[in-house]
Computed example of a mutant assay.
Amino acid sequence: MSITDRLAELGVTLPDAPAPAANYVPFVRAGGLLFVSGQISTGPEGLITGRLGDGMAVADGAAAARACAISLLAQVKTACDGDIERLTRVVKLTAFVNCTPDFGDQPKVVNGASDFLVEALGEAGRHSRSAVGASLPFGVAVEIEGIFETR
């Protein structure tokens, strides 16, 4: 099944790729690898903000991480001249979770992105990753950057 078909089956339409918020590019290609800049948690109503361990539930953080993964795929699609089918593998995610110093469930939050990518891409969605706590711009709940293999 194609990536486009899997996304449709999941009820996901990739949005336009978000523009950078500062002085950087949204992605860089190096050979067959595509390095996508950090994508902050954004939904149809705007930024998804909150701090895990301070009023935001893990499930809400996981939904924010899923939104980041959708934005990552939107950037990949743009980098591949609109052809998401050129994506062959998710290599690595580095995820940052806005949380209190004593919050320790960053991996559970980031599973929102990881689980979605495996649902959408099958085995090609399995990846290595890091999940760390941080203070994030605009008070967003999650930011994730990724490395992808494309053809």
Results as ranks from 00 to 15, higher is better:
Val28His: 11
Thr13Ser: 14
Gln39Ile: 05
Gly46Glu: 13
Thr13Lys: 14
Gly11Cys: 05
Ala65Tyr: 03
Leu34Val: 05
Asp16Lys: 14
Leu14His: 03
Ala8Ser: 09
Thr13Glu: 15
Arg66Tyr: 01
Gly50Val: 09
Gly46Ala: 11
Gly46Pro: 08
Phe35Pro: 02
Ala17Tyr: 06
Glu9Phe: 05
Arg6His: 01
Leu52Thr: 05
Ile3Asn: 00
Gly61Lys: 06
Arg6Trp: 00
Gly43Tyr: 02
Arg29Pro: 03
Val58Ser: 10
Val12Asp: 01
Leu34Asn: 03
Ile3Trp: 00
Val25Arg: 14
Asp60Cys: 12
Asp60His: 13
Leu10Arg: 00
Arg29Leu: 04
Ala21Asp: 14
Phe35Tyr: 10
Ala63Ser: 10
Asn23Gly: 14
Ile48Glu: 03
Ala64Tyr: 02
Arg6Leu: 00
Arg29His: 05
Leu52Met: 14
Leu34Asp: 04
Leu52Cys: 15
Arg29Asn: 06
Gly11Arg: 01
Ser37Phe: 04
Gly32Met: 05
Tyr24Asp: 13
Arg6Thr: 00
Pro26Gln: 13
Pro44Ile: 07
Arg51Leu: 12
Pro18Thr: 04
Asn23Arg: 15
Ala57Gly: 13
Arg51Cys: 15
Ala67Ile: 00
Ala65Ser: 09
Ala30Lys: 13
Leu10Gln: 01
Gly38Arg: 01
Pro15Gly: 11
Ala62Arg: 04
Val25Glu: 14
Gly11Gln: 02
Asp60Ile: 06
Glu45Tyr: 11
Gly32Cys: 03
Asp60Leu: 15
Leu14Phe: 05
Val25Met: 11
Arg51Lys: 14
Val28Ser: 07
Gln39Leu: 03
Pro26Trp: 04
Thr42Lys: 14
Leu10Gly: 00
Ala19Met: 14
Ala64Ile: 04
Arg66Met: 02
Pro26Tyr: 03
Ile40Trp: 06
Gly53Ile: 03
Gly38His: 01
Gly55Ser: 12
Ser37Gln: 10
Asp54Tyr: 10
Gly61Phe: 06
Ser37Pro: 04
Ala30Arg: 13
Gly43Glu: 06
Ala67Cys: 04
Gly38Trp: 00
Gly53Thr: 04
Gly43Pro: 07
Thr49Asn: 07
Ala64Glu: 05
Ala59Gln: 14
Thr42Phe: 10
Pro26Ile: 07
Thr4Val: 11
Leu33Arg: 12
Pro15Tyr: 10
Tyr24Gln: 12
Met56Leu: 15
Ser37Thr: 11
Thr49Met: 07
Pro20His: 12
Asp54Asn: 12
Ala64Lys: 03
Asp16Glu: 15
Pro20Glu: 13
Asp16Cys: 13
Thr4Cys: 01
Arg6Pro: 00
Phe27Leu: 09
Leu47Asn: 08
Ala59Pro: 08
Asp5Leu: 09
Pro44Gln: 12
Leu34Ile: 05
Val28Glu: 12
Leu34Gln: 05
Tyr24Arg: 14
Ser41Leu: 02
Gly55Leu: 13
Pro20Gly: 09
Ser37Asn: 09
